[in-house]
Write a protein that binds this DNA or RNA. Sequence first.
DNA 1: TTATTACATGCGAATATTCGAATGTTACAA
DNA 2: TTGTAACATTCGAATATTCGCATGTAATAA
Lengths: 113, 113
Amino acid sequence: MQGDPLRRFKADIFQALAHPTRIAILEFLGKGELSAGALMEKLGMEQANVSQHLAVLRAKRIVANRKAGNQVFYSVQDPIIGEVLSLMRTYCRARLKETLGMLGETRKAVRVR
Amino acid sequence: MQGDPLRRFKADIFQALAHPTRIAILEFLGKGELSAGALMEKLGMEQANVSQHLAVLRAKRIVANRKAGNQVFYSVQDPIIGEVLSLMRTYCRARLKETLGMLGETRKAVRVR
DNA sequence: TTATTACATGCGAATATTCGAATGTTACAA
DNA sequence: TTGTAACATTCGAATATTCGCATGTAATAA
């Protein structure tokens, strides 16, 4: 039961999505293909670190990479991943609003993207 | 950018979903409320282990628990979680089929729930 | 050829997850 | 009160993630 291959596979994908940086990468890529360097800039993080996170996403085949001369362009393989992230955003925004609301209605202008 | 609260929150929820046992628990609970003991039976796992995974899901408020005398009944808090799992199942089935297909069309009758 | 740009990978320390085994706790029955 | 059933929690060892830092590689420019 625990060794169910499909559930293992799902868990692996969820695991790959379970990091703020990788979520940010996928959100940026959702708007279109980007080079590793462009991602690095947008994220404001070390090159090696971004590359490592991209390696995680590549290993699970969540992103595709295309070499063009000097650069490597990344894109999201399957649009379903975008839908998963979108659903999760809806879910988390509701929960966050709820939690923040609980600790006082006076707490206004809490910006949640 | 990396410290974005919403992305951290999303990552935390994905992390909670990133285990085959917890996915199984949520799939069972998707069909209706179940006691911890009933889950233990359906999963065929140790009581303590199931309880630990339930604790992870509780900590993230993904499941709700209701005490009724001797037992504790669990249920999924928000139906969106079910939708996320459903989307992920669709995604993973497609990927698994594709991957298995790649290593020989002769491999038939590979049952993927 | 040498240098530089754009990425990727290897290594090690810090941190987090997971499981089994033992122990707690709570509700109820005897 | 004593016992038992149903869960929860704690502890420790094994394993996995993550980050910074250093190094490696492939394409192109000088």
